[in-house]
Write a protein that binds this DNA or RNA. Sequence first.
RNA 1: GCCGGAGUGGCGGAAUUGGCAGACGCGCGGGAUUCAAAAUCCCGUCCUGGCAACAGGGUGAGGGUUCGAGUCCCUCCUCCGGCACCA
Length: 851
Amino acid sequence: MGTAAGAYDFGQIEKKWQQFWEANRTFKATDCDGSKPKYYILDMFPYPSGQGLHVGHPEGYTASDIVARYKRMKGFNVLHPFGWDAFGLPAEQHAINTGTHPEATTNANITNMRRQTKSLGFSYDWDREIATTDPEYYRWTQWIFLKLFNSYFDDAQQKARPIKELPIPEGLSEEEKRRYVEDHRLAYQADVPVNWCPELGTVLANEEVVGGVSERGGHSVIRKPMRQWMLRITKYAERLLDDLSAVDWPESIKKLQMDWIGKSVGAEVCFRIDGFDQDIWVFTTRPDTLFGATYMVMAPEHALVDIITTDGQKQAVKDYCEATARKSDLDRTDLAKDKTGVFTGAYAINPVNDERIPIWISDYVLISYGTGAIMAVPAHDDRDFEFATKFELPIVPVVEPPDPLDAEKVERGELCFTGNGTAINSGAFDGLPTPQFKEKITAWLAERGLGRKAINYKLRDWLFSRQRYWGEPFPIVHLPDGRVKGISEDELPLRLPQVRDYAPLGTGEPPLAKATDWVNVTLPDGTPARRETNTMPQWAGSCWYYLRYLDPRNADVGWAPEKEDYWMPVDLYIGGAEHAVLHLLYARFWHKFLYDLGKVHTKEPFKKLVNQGMILGEDGQKMSKSRGNVVNPDQVIADYGADSMRLYEMFMGPLEAMKPWSMQGVQGVHRFLQKTWRLMVDEESGQPLAAVQDARADEETLRLLHQTIRKVGGDIETFGFNTAISAMMILVNYLGRLDVRPRSVLEPLVLILSPFAPHLAEELWQRLGHRESLAHEPWPVYDAALAQAREIELAVQVNGKIKDRIVVPAEADEDSIKANALGNEKVVEALNGKTPKKVIVIRSRLVNIVA
RNA sequence: GCCGGAGUGGCGGAAUUGGCAGACGCGCGGGAUUCAAAAUCCCGUCCUGGCAACAGGGUGAGGGUUCGAGUCCCUCCUCCGGCACCA
């Protein structure tokens, strides 16, 4: 196999061109080149895992590489960088088990994955390679954190400002002033009930807990109050939501982000507590149902619970609160099927009708959303309905559904209606449609100081600290008096210290606490202090890496402003849909913050986003070691070559779709590349075939060529890589039948194939007599006139059924087509003497005769 | 439960967005080449009936709009993804 001198020796060819590109810096991106339009195309950088590359990675990378190579040929100055999201739990778990420094593991994994990535021939500018674990990189991650720490959010201006400019209310003590400032920083510490994972020995962000267990590893997660670093992402909720309309992203991803942010517009309403000075505020999206509020529910953690509970109910309430506190997240969701709760013994006064309503506690009300208390309207809220039914609380209908049948059921308390309708049992407001009632009652409450318009978000502040070793250290010190200070920027990077072992202490104390020499510091003024021992979560480094690529070796700033101005935003971002809310929301948040600081000039970092779908094993199942269906890219490349691998991954189906692997499919595209080779190269000599000539192509050949150029270019623009490949296959199959293969046809074919199979294309280009790489050759221009067929075959239907086909000149007008069709003998036969009622002519498509 | 997305040959998938369903590839069948095999090339391949020309049916199921529906509308089924007491 492949013994002849001129055979398609992909192994040798691919190595040769990879070395050529690297030696010649073929894909070097030139900063601030004003002579060309720029195009920034970014892949989601991978975690350097010990498993190495799997076949899912090259899918997105090949797609982006095709676009990058295509755009270069279209005359763009393309920035196409690559790097490593290198902090992460696997290297640390390995360190805990074996004592190997995670850095050593990480570097070895990067070396291996870099080799694998390079073996696919992607046109990255490798001079810009970065790793988030490099101190020269995380120096700037820490720098951004310091900026967050030293900023607050100005609600009126809806933007971040330096903490020094925070207006502090009059009359506060020094201690209160300090607290006030701490409470406004965008990076702050708080005692929060966190997702504590005993198995991993760390807390997790809400986004990292899936179905009550940890996203990584599937370990159980419990609720535990701990002092943690938080980022005030909630301040950006409105902007994160608004600016989604400005990006070209899949609607599904935008929707996921919208739902995650979860904006609700409603009102906060004040209820007096009978016999107490205190009030309870509740948040509701349905202030129009206030007259139907028959009880209240507070979260068990609510501060007022202890105060208002009557002696008789003390024990029951205490037991319930303790039981709730012990529940893990998983237990809570499991128990969600059946509502639980306890009466406090206290009553509140409904502000609209002065009714006395009982106050309950239940864990179906969350302390972390709204005010931690609700007014319950069982007739018009499913959860309240369920609770009221179980505990036999009154149900008062106040909204009449439009459907009379429903209305009757609601009236009898048999149906819970949550839609819009007409107000009933609501005093002077009766008869109002829901939307108007909402506005009226909100104004009514506001006039009396009993309520106000309010907006709530599901989005919570970002839990930003982890009790791990392998992450960015916080540039923060703790003073003996409890104050927290950021270290100065010129002390960055704050490097990770060496530690004896990497195991968490299990108490919540991070491994860094073991590095006492590092932890204990003396400040310039002589004060002893302790360094923060938590580290940042993995998402930190990926929040801004697209900016470091712009200026990756700059030792003075994270990125130079003129480079940011030239390259940003990212024009095309390709990666997996699993990052829909995590990475993409966090990165947008940091970007908006940097925008407020004037460090970036665009509101959004990623203009267009495309998700590649997952590649399944040959059995149609998700690839996994235990199933034994994992495809090894190294093996595929060894057997068929990188070009075949690239081409196959693009030929499998639509980029975004989930699709199963097929080794025979790889063979299929490999055959196509072989065929393309043999189209031009003599397998014996390696020289161009005698059939390759400087001859004129005939009309039919030119037409197919120009149609193919048009199709392939158009398909690349719309990510239809599978159909682009199919079009090239048709052209190659056609040319294979010709005895004379004009160079003027083969050369454009090689050029349009080159983004897909770059090694083969470069080799063919050279063997056709070119000295330069084709990487910057102009993309062939198609001639619309040549692509246009002279004659067109039309289907002729009678009553929608095809009877025959006719051939007409491309420019034939409707009347002549009509005459042609009606004169067709099959048509005459089918009509059987009947007169056509109507003749529909779709030029270039078909004729339909209705009889 | 709620919100998205998708159901097309034996398989992966095409179909100008309302206009010839099944491009291209895989697989399979037949043939050429070969001592033989691999590789390669040619022909066939949605289903049913027929030697064939041809006829009929066909895009998850059922209904509707239309001269015309894989594509649009309604109802239902299945699979995948997301959220899961967010008031």
